[in-house]
Design a protein around this nucleic acid. Sequence first.
DNA 1: GTAATAATAAAACAAACGTTCAATTAATTC
DNA 2: GAATTAATTGAACGTTTGTTTTATTATTAC
Lengths: 220, 220
Amino acid sequence: MARTTGSDGEKTEAAVREAAAGLIARYGYEAMSMRRLAAEVGVQAAALYRYFPTKEDLLFTLMREHMEGLIAAWEMARPTTAGPKARLAAYVQNHIAFHIERRHSTHVSNMELRSLSHDRLTRILRMRTAYEKELRAILRDGTEAGVFSIEDTGLTAMALIQMMTGVIVWFRPGERLSVAEVTATYLSMTMRLVGAKIDSAAAAYSVERPFGRAENAAGV
Amino acid sequence: MARTTGSDGEKTEAAVREAAAGLIARYGYEAMSMRRLAAEVGVQAAALYRYFPTKEDLLFTLMREHMEGLIAAWEMARPTTAGPKARLAAYVQNHIAFHIERRHSTHVSNMELRSLSHDRLTRILRMRTAYEKELRAILRDGTEAGVFSIEDTGLTAMALIQMMTGVIVWFRPGERLSVAEVTATYLSMTMRLVGAKIDSAAAAYSVERPFGRAENAAGV
DNA sequence: GTAATAATAAAACAAACGTTCAATTAATTC
DNA sequence: GAATTAATTGAACGTTTGTTTTATTATTAC
């Protein structure tokens, strides 16, 4: 047989991306065979090559779009006029919300870097560095303004990112804690970690448009 | 040919373990072929099967011994009579020192869990849970004693472990920072994160026998 | 020095891998 | 309704995979 009834290129490609992210997150890039992926999508392996010339192209596409999405989300969420503390709060909220929302591609982007070619690895790492640079800038500004007390800006940024991204390792939606509760707790841990001075302005941590659904509930 | 001059089972096995940890850390378990591993050791692939019946047995051995080593190191380092703050400091120091010292097997143990069979995964996770339980106990004791101010003990434990283990992602020995400096900074970040009350007892954070070499230098 | 054993090499196995190609059918265009 | 294009199948390709088997040599024990 050949073309199947109701088949549609765009739908198939989207299904391939989603299935690939799920399978790679669960079993790893090397462990996912193209035949297994095709079966998950409900298609023959050869059909995948209409959308992605090689397996590595597929991996790279997932990673690139993950990073582009993360940076775009931050550009939407970032407060431009606010002080260091509100900006840090926005960064934390955006980061956690984005990574929980996209658990699978986060896993892929964090675990499968080693399967990229040198050039593509460089491109992904460049995006990542740009994103992390934003956090370092916030920490530096806060330290210079005397709002934070931080010993080493770069090291603190790495520690915070590892801590926040680590949420996806254990967090499962619908269990003991909600996204809002987790975010609120991580936010206060972050503020203590950077030695943020407590101030009386009640809305100090709140931010206008966090990524994803409105989950500002927890009283922070 | 067959047995080569100077060949020795124990040495070969040790070489296999070390080479395997390095290759899996760099390229991943699935991406490491038995032939590649054998070449790294300087032996034919068939020779590996004298020491490990299957590839997965090799992986499991690396992980089990990593976890056993971690737990053993903590049992050596743990202060039994000290208060929560000194115990937490000992935990952090031991954790960071151990993971930096064994970067490769740490990578393996963190990234390749999905390649284990169900039973073996359960065994490794049991060890991990036991180790993490120690940290939760310290945090709980400190909170009850009023020394720490923590909202959610379990969540804080996960955040701390992710933060500390994340050191191996970016830390390279011999670069900008020494192990002692990194440990000192992480220690003070940890203490702020758990809201540890500052006390005047100067030696509050010091601990008798940290894992590995004596790197207590930084004035914490 | 001979017998036993430990450690390895070399070759082979079937299975699975990523990928390509030709054929075939569904949908679209005119 | 015929011609064109889009989407997919099924079979095949050469490699590489983990593993097994058999033979061979170094070492050890007596």
